[in-house]
Write a protein that binds this DNA or RNA. Structure first.
Ligand SMILES: [Zn+2]
Length: 196
DNA sequence: ATTTTCAAT
């Protein structure tokens, strides 16, 4: 009865940062919230949890680095070893081609990890479709953040001042549309037909 | 054939 990590121990995201970055505005930056759960054998309850959030790194002071790679940088510090674990990421943009391939490679090399990714918007720069498909084929679950995940993040990662999550009027409509678009991307089978 | 958006001028 002591392993629980009180939410107040963690640094929480500013309210405005969340609503602004995880809304429909197409910002030139990316936030990523993560939740890592480590399991022991067949136990239902995690023996350890790591939660937090980060932002991509701009040029100053160091080299630029996308949010997903910043996240991968953190993983060794948790000493996951070969322990069964689930990782859930909530990202304001979906992974780009390069990041998707890096995440896919991580999954292939760490078969004890299962990865779920929820994204607020689809980052549609060259190669993104192939990247997302490859990531899914490596075993990741990829989906759009609906009001359910938005609410979860609001309650888990945000300094919400005790306020209830209030979705934008058109959230469901927008996210349903994006979900359909994402479905089209990751349902596509690697094409023996496309070469005809 | 495939929607510029993880920024600094
Ligand atoms: Zn990237």
């Amino acid at each position: 009865m002591e392993a629980d990590q009180a939410p107040s121990d963690r640094h929480l995201m500013d309210k405005y940062t969340f609503t602004h970055n995880f809304g429909e505005t197409q910002l030139h930056q990316t936030y990523l919230c993560y939740e890592v759960k480590v399991f022991k054998d067949d136990s239902q309850d995690p023996v350890k949890e790591f939660k937090g959030f980060l932002r991509n790194q701009g040029r100053n002071p160091g080299p630029r680095r996308h949010a997903e790679l910043c996240f991968l940088d953190l993983i060794p510090s948790w000493n996951l070893d070969e322990k069964l674990c689930t990782i859930t990421c909530f990202i304001s943009w979906s992974p780009c081609y390069d990041c998707a391939l890096q995440l896919a490679a991580f999954l292939v090399e760490n078969s004890h990890v299962s990865l779920s990714i929820f994204c607020a918007r689809i980052y549609s720069i060259s190669g993104y479709k192939q990247g997302l498909l490859a990531l899914q084929n490596a075993g990741a679950q990829i989906a759009i953040m609906t009001s359910k995940e938005m609410k979860y993040c609001w309650e888990t990662f945000v300094d919400n001042k005790g306020q209830e999550f209030q979705p934008q009027d058109n959230l469901d409509k927008t996210r349903n549309y994006l979900s359909m678009e994402l479905e089209k991307i990751i349902r596509k089978t690697e094409g023996w037909m496309s070469s005809l």
